[in-house]
Design a protein around this nucleic acid. Structure first.
Length: 591
RNA sequence: GCGCCCGUAGCUCAACUGGAUAGAGCAUCGGCCUUCUAAGCCGACGGUUGCAGGUUCGAGUCCUGCCGGGCGUGCCA
């Protein structure tokens, strides 16, 4: 509809240019928007206002000429000139009603668009280190990334959802070593557990599986484990902090020596597999499913990192200083140059990031979206710099930053800290408030806003809870259809379709207008990477329906009117279900 | 210090990337169940969009400077 109006205006403008009342060289961009209020019609355009200056004429005068030249269209009831020069379009009643037929015909596909035009986009999100359970911070990234992916897909993009598994590097070694130490403990070997090791109980679980599969094979004496190691650090001062790092690194090295590659690998693989399986299961229960789990190790072993660095070196974007290799990131807008190869010859994490980006490009994506936590915003400039250095358009790399979510319980902020291990896991949150509420609450706010997550509200089964409010609207529709039999009626969709002109109540018009907006919401939410628009829209649609439901009886005696209203209600149920699906929220038939 | 993000009703947030009279929910107050689910509906109250300038037909939105908050600023991952 919007495009149709755009087309009408464009035609009128071309006419004016032909007649010479508008300069020919102008190439006006015709913007048509939904109006904020029905007083201004259904759609409005501000072309006359934007043309006023270049054409050096009064906006209202231009608008009037446009209106005179508009071809009539069966969907447009009337066109009005308003305010400083807006052109307002009012749709016909028939045009409003036709959306119902369209929705019922398209069903689950209603709202799907072609904006994406098959653009290949990859959305990478969560990608938490597989060193422990996901916590509520990851939850927001998961909800945002998954919903965004769904919406992009609905808007016609070709989407791949990817989880980047950091299965290499120091943290993984510390994890593997932690598992081994717990394994020893379970076997009766007493060794002091390092302050910087992974403390969680889940480490014992992994250790137990290692014992099951390998018995005492990995057992070593306490002396062999800890003799000659530097002291662990105790306390808060910076010195103790350094001591802890030195201690844990030495311990990892000791574990590797004592166990040898194969047995160390047993701990490593057991830990990795357990963590990744756990994360995968956790996310699946959160209705978050990935198309691909990408391994950092494979990236390294395939020589991609070297290749990426070679490519940068060829372009003279690397240089040596203090024995390390640096990327000239400042040449591409970063605030400082970045190390890619350390003095000791090992590549940095950033080097892997560069290789990973290159790998994505080579896989043929037109766009790569990295969903990151706001605390990672330092990466943005540096990844862009790397992209530029590789000769790629930094624009193809998008990094929406998801702000923190704070949990509130009984009006009090829930304190969390990773250090003490006292963080709320995603699993706990899910079990407390349910997947539906959690998914909805996470994307209810714009991703660049801090989110206050009210646990009590999310749990409450009341009018205050927007999730239930929307689901209730869907259940009401289903309930009406169940009631048909009791009343001796049945739904005849054909009769309803033929009688749509009976839908003329203001409440009905409001609902139909909302329904017609759904495809536009998908389009806008995709374009702006803003899933919260969908959450807001669904709430508004539910509200319009609840309001209608209270004002008018659907199951009336009049057969034509009854079926027309049933068609309308069915359409509402369909759109609610479609929208909730994108959010990863269920659409129950009864509550 | 420097960099990025944010500041809108008492609270939590919208506002279609520059459009018309800045909108919702919560909270507060008042109404509606003998009728399709009251997990609902209807109404009232609530604003100098942090402050000061600037850009233009038009600014919550853009530019500058302040004020306040968050995060970052490792040869960590």
């Amino acid at each position: 509809m919007r495009k149709l109006i755009q087309e009408l205006i464009t035609q009128a403008l071309l006419d004016m240019q032909r007649e010479g009342s508008l300069p020919k060289e102008l190439e006006p961009e015709v913007v048509v928007e939904r109006t904020r209020s029905i007083e201004h019609g259904d759609f409005a355009s501000n072309v006359a206002l934007t043309l006023a200056k270049p054409a050096r004429r009064a906006p209202r005068e231009i608008a009037e000429e446009i209106i005179d030249r508009l071809l009539s269209n069966k969907n447009v009831e009337k066109v009005e000139l308003a305010g400083p020069g807006f052109i307002n379009f009012y749709l016909t009643q028939h045009s409003l009603q036709s959306v119902i037929t369209q929705i019922l015909a398209q069903g689950d596909d209603y709202g799907q668009g072609y904006d994406g035009n098959g653009t290949r986009v990859q959305v990478e999100f969560v990608s938490a280190n597989p060193t422990g359970p996901l916590h509520v911070g990851h939850g927001r990234g998961a909800a945002y990334g998954a919903t965004l992916s769904n919406i992009l897909e609905a808007a016609g993009y070709h989407v791949q959802r990817e989880y980047y598994v950091n299965d290499a590097g120091r943290q993984m070694d510390i994890l593997a070593t932690s598992v081994w130490l717990r394994y020893l403990e379970l076997g009766g070997t007493q060794v002091a557990f390092p302050a910087n090791g992974y403390q969680g109980d889940y480490i014992y679980d992994v250790a137990r599986t290692v014992r099951q599969d390998h018995g005492d094979d990995l057992r070593r004496s306490a002396q062999e484990v800890s003799d000659g190691l530097p002291e662990d650090g105790i306390g808060d001062d910076p010195e103790a902090k350094d001591q802890r790092e030195v201690h844990i690194d030495a311990l990892v090295l000791r574990a590797k020596q004592a166990l040898g590659d194969e047995q160390y690998g047993v701990c490593y693989e057991a830990a990795l597999n357990a963590m990744v399986d756990d994360i995968r299961e956790d996310l699946a229960r959160f209705n978050v499913v990935y198309d691909n789990w990408f391994s950092e190790r494979e990236l390294a072993s395939s020589g991609s990192v070297q290749r990426a660095l070679d490519q940068l070196r060829e372009q003279s974007h690397l240089y040596e200083k203090d024995g390390a290799q640096w990327l000239r990131a400042t040449e591409f807008g970063d605030e400082k140059d970045r190390v890619v190869i350390r003095e000791d010859g090992r590549t940095t994490y950033f080097a892997s990031d560069i290789a990973y980006f290159l790998n994505k490009v080579e896989r043929g994506f037109d766009r790569t979206i990295y969903v990151l936590g706001a605390d990672h915003h330092g990466y943005v400039a540096r990844l862009r710099a790397a992209a530029s250095g590789l000769g790629k358009d930094p624009e193809m790399l998008e990094i929406p930053l998801v702000q923190f979510a704070h949990l509130y319980r009984h009006g009090e902020k829930v304190q969390m800290s990773t250090r003490s291990g006292k963080f709320v896991t995603l699993r706990e949150l899910r079990e407390e408030v349910g997947t539906d509420a959690a998914r909805f609450f996470y994307v209810m706010r714009s991703h660049d806003q801090h989110l206050d997550f009210d646990l009590d509200l999310a749990k409450s089964q009341s009018q205050d809870n927007p999730v239930y409010y929307i689901q209730y609207a869907h259940a009401r529709v289903a309930s009406m259809f169940r009631k048909l039999d009791d009343k001796g009626y049945s739904h005849n969709s054909a009769i309803g379709a033929a009688a749509l002109e009976r839908l003329t109540e203001p409440h009905e018009n409001t609902v139909m207008r909302s329904l017609a907006q759904y495809p536009e919401v998908i389009s806008a939410a995709a374009r702006k990477r803003a899933p919260h628009l969908m959450a807001h829209y669904l709430r508004d649609l539910a509200q319009d329906f609840h309001s209608y439901y209270n004002a008018h009886q659907v199951l009336v005696d009049d057969e034509d009117l009854r079926n027309a209203r049933l068609n309308l209600s069915q359409a509402v149920g369909q759109v609610l279900a479609n929208g909730l699906k994108l959010l990863g929220v269920s659409a129950p038939d009864s509550m």
